[in-house]
Design a protein around this nucleic acid. Structure first.
Lengths: 119, 119
DNA sequence: CAGTATCCTTTATGATACTG
DNA sequence: CAGTATCATAAAGGATACTG
């Protein structure tokens, strides 16, 4: 049982980290944590998210086993995305990240302002 | 006091999220959490990290107030990077993320294999 | 509705060479 | 040692049009 070292390029942990460290992953997972949603519902919720990026991100999330896709044979077709148990385990961590961002954004912005005015 | 909505494109929280969700940020911050390090020390520790990316990432981390830079007037110059108190507050959250990746990498890899063989 | 396919632009990153 | 500057390339992303 060897512990993966994320500082090695080939480490699979780093691959996961890279996937999670994705612009849309955190936001999509955050929405699905509250309940299933359909494709265009998600699209409307997340500003600036293009159809292409949504489609792409959903596909990798599904591939990683973090969300699941269910299509209903209505006309036109309805597709519902929901979070998996594995995905659930991630959301609490991501929530913490979101929370950090929300509560420290002010300090970061201040630091940036200081940095920019000195330079 | 309004709560920022990260689902809005203009939300500064999303900017922070994007910055944190950076390939190298998590790894660099993780190393500096254990103590100060010099430029090339960091470079050697993180496989696949180019000089350019390191330099660039360190600069934004410093700008965001998450790390601080101190130069010693030796010949040749020595530069030490260390984590700030603000940066400290982030690392526990990022540790959780790293931990998640390490403990769930197996499940993710399995999910990927299943997905790929069906398709 | 929920996508896919294509083209095209922008951004990110790598390689290399150079400097205080 | 700790960078910066420049060039070249690859990858990411957007816009648009089309389909079951």
């Amino acid at each position: 049982m060897k512990i993966p070292n994320p500082y090695a390029a080939t480490c699979p942990t780093r691959l996961v980290l890279d996937r999670v460290a994705d612009k849309w992953t955190v936001l999509i997972l955050g929405l699905l944590a509250n309940g299933p949603m359909r494709f265009n519902q998600l699209r409307r919720q997340i500003e600036g998210l293009s159809q292409k990026m949504l489609s792409q991100t959903l596909k990798s999330l599904e591939r990683d086993g973090l969300i699941s896709r269910k299509a209903f044979p209505t006309v036109p077709v309805t597709v519902e995305y929901s979070i998996t148990p594995l995905g659930q385990t991630l959301t609490s961590t991501l929530d913490a990240l979101r929370t950090w961002a929300e509560s420290h954004i002010g300090e970061v912005l201040d630091a940036q302002k200081r940095y920019d005015t000195v330079a």
